[in-house]
């Protein structure tokens, strides 16, 4: 499929997904309720002309949730696409750097040793610090001067992940029953806690990653030829790699901090983007940001409607939704190659 058609397809999907996500949820609202609430908010309708409950649901619950989904998904998708380019490996994803498990350990420490998940700021702050700390440790093992060695980075990431995983296991073991439930819930990931305040706190690192990663696209394209070839083309390979790792750690750290670890998006969305738009990183990274945001919004819409008024963990939905679709595309491409 060529980019132009993909673009139309994605734009249409985006409209439907965003609209649906604003309309459905635990409180019944019709598209008309949403429209009139929206009209009131932007000043097209006089105040009080809409059920104030609907305005509140829309403004304070659904809109921040949709916005969080878009930004978190975008950061996860773009980070995955960039890291696959950095490592020249289609299996790379943000968790390789230890950022997801590091963030989880940070959150787990706050939940188990602190006051629990109730506190608004402590858990995200712990997660963000943990994510950055883990990436820093992994990168330290790979650093030489201003550049990073890929294999050492992978091995460093494995060591950090193993340690964080064990520490989380230990925390689950020693935690009380109620904290164990909080911890398990957090570890499954959810957009349920999204508020404008939380999103505001994470917006800067998320935004820096989403805007910064596409700027590395051309260098990552050159890196697809190999390291020596990229530096023949004037690319400072080590610095590009370091920049990519820092941006990914910022974005994914912030994403995990406000929504918990959400798997699958960073690994698979870039492949979808590539199948639809080609190998060029400009398209892959931007496409993965858009696709990741959409996938999260769709998954979140399903997560809070399928078992309404309860909610499914969003990671479960992203995987259930994305895996079969991804598998289908793989099959189709294989057939095209054989034919």
């Amino acid at each position: 499929m060529r980019p132009r058609w993909s673009f139309v397809l994605v734009a249409a999907l985006a409209l439907v997904a965003l609209g649906t996500s604003l309309v459905v949820g635990a409180v019944d609202t019709s598209p008309r309720d949403v429209m009139s609430a929206f009209a009131e908010v932007v000043g097209l309708a006089p105040p009080g002309s809409t059920d104030s409950r609907h305005v509140a649901v829309l403004l304070d619950i659904r809109a921040p949730r949709v916005a969080t989904g878009l930004l978190v998904g975008a950061a996860l998708g773009a980070a995955g696409a960039a890291l696959q380019g950095v490592f020249r490996n289609p299996l790379a994803d943000p968790s390789l750097l230890g950022v997801s498990l590091g963030a989880s350990l940070g959150a787990a420490l706050v939940i188990v040793l602190g006051q629990g998940i109730g506190s608004l700021w402590a858990t995200p702050a712990g997660a963000f610090a943990g994510g950055l700390g883990a990436t820093l440790l992994a990168s330290l093992a790979a650093q030489s001067g201003r550049s990073l060695d890929t294999v050492s980075l992978l091995l460093g990431g494995i060591a950090v992940q193993a340690f964080c995983g064990a520490a989380i296991g230990l925390l689950i073991y020693v935690a009380s029953d109620s904290k164990q439930r909080d911890l398990t819930f957090w570890l499954l990931g959810s957009l349920g806690g999204s508020t404008w305040h939380r999103l505001g706190a994470a917006a800067l690192p998320l935004g820096v990653a989403i805007v910064g990663l596409p700027r590395l696209a051309r260098s990552l394209d050159a890196l697809a030829l190999g390291e020596a070839e990229a530096s023949d083309l004037g690319i400072a390979v080590g610095r590009v790699r370091a920049a990519a790792v820092i941006l990914c750690a910022l974005g994914v750290g912030a994403a995990v901090a406000i929504s918990g670890p959400i798997g699958f998006v960073g690994l698979v969305v870039p492949h979808l983007a590539r199948i639809l738009g080609g190998a060029s990183h400009r398209i892959t990274i931007v496409g993965s940001a858009i696709g990741g945001g959409l996938l999260l919004v769709i998954a979140d819409t399903l997560a809070r409607t399928i078992v309404k008024p309860a909610e499914l963990p969003i990671g479960v939905v992203t995987a259930f939704l994305g895996a079969p679709f991804f598998y289908f595309l793989l099959l189709r491409r294989r057939r095209a190659e054989v034919a």
């Binding site: 380019g85 020249r88 490996n89 051309r218 260098s219 394209d221 050159a222 697809a224 030829l225 190999g226 020596a228 070839e229 083309l233 004037g234 690319i235 590539r274 080609g278 190998a279 060029s280």
Partner: peptide, 21 residues
Amino acid sequence: RQRFSVSGDFRVGEVVRLGRT
């Protein structure tokens, strides 16, 4: 170089244009 590889499904034109980096 003697050995070359391109990771990812690039078009021929894209590979050549990488020379314009």
